[in-house]
Simulated assay, not measured.
Amino acid sequence: MMPTAQMSSSGGPWRLYVALMGATEWPDFRWERPAPVPTIAERRTVLATLGYEPVPGSEWSWIEDTATHGDDTSPVVLIAAIDVRELTGGAS
């Protein structure tokens, strides 16, 4: 199964992490700003720093969730995701 990079925020700092099945810790990075949303170029740079790159042809997709499961009055959490793979030729 291919790893997925996800980026999320609930109105505060943005966090990008690579979800690795079976791992106890995931590579991650935080932008200590609520706005603007990190650009695609910023995300690509962070992924490379973490040792990953987007799978060719993949695009970021966005969903929203609630901070409290099942409570549609709780704050919204925005989540972006993209399929990634380990870098093979080093960071670019």
Rank of each mutant, 00 (worst) to 15 (best):
D83E: 15
S10W: 00
R85L: 13
W62Y: 08
R30K: 11
V46A: 06
G70I: 10
E64Y: 09
D83W: 04
L47D: 00
V18K: 01
W14H: 10
S10G: 14
G11K: 12
V77Q: 08
S61Y: 08
M7W: 01
A5Q: 13
A91D: 05
A80I: 08
V46H: 02
I82E: 06
L87G: 06
G57W: 01
Y52V: 07
T24W: 11
A5R: 00
V55T: 11
I40F: 00
E53C: 11
M1S: 10
E86A: 12
T68N: 09
Y52E: 00
V76Q: 09
V76C: 11
R15Q: 15
I79E: 02
G11Y: 08
T45W: 02
G90E: 00
A81F: 03
E86L: 10
T24Q: 14
Q6F: 07
H69W: 08
T24L: 12
A48V: 02
V37E: 12
W31F: 14
T49C: 12
G90K: 05
W14N: 02
T73C: 02
P13Q: 14
R30C: 11
A81Y: 08
T24C: 10
T88K: 14
D71R: 04
Q6C: 08
W14L: 03
A19D: 15
Y17E: 15
S10E: 01
P36Y: 08
M7S: 06
T88A: 05
A35L: 11
S74V: 04
V84W: 03
W60D: 11
R44G: 07
D72V: 06
L20D: 05
D83R: 14
V76S: 03
S9H: 03
E32D: 05
P36E: 06
Y52P: 02
M2H: 14
P13G: 15
T68E: 14
L47Y: 06
R44T: 15
R33D: 00
G12I: 04
T39F: 00
T66M: 01
A80P: 01
R44M: 04
T88F: 04
P54I: 04
G70R: 02
T73G: 05
T73K: 15
G22H: 11
I40W: 03
V18R: 00
M2L: 13
G57Q: 10
P56D: 05
S8M: 06
E59Y: 07
P56H: 09
T68A: 08
Y52T: 05
V77L: 12
R85E: 15
V77D: 06
G12C: 01
V46D: 06
I82V: 15
L47F: 10
A80H: 12
E59D: 12
T88Y: 01
L16P: 04
S10H: 02
Y52R: 05
L20P: 00
A5S: 05
V37W: 07
L50F: 03
V37C: 07
A19V: 12
E59K: 13
M1P: 10
V84M: 08
M7R: 09
I40C: 03
R43W: 01
G70V: 09
L78V: 15
L47P: 04
G89T: 14
T88N: 09
L50I: 12
E64S: 14
S74G: 08
Y52A: 07
S9V: 07
G90L: 05
I82Y: 01
Y17Q: 15
P34V: 01
A5P: 10
A23S: 14
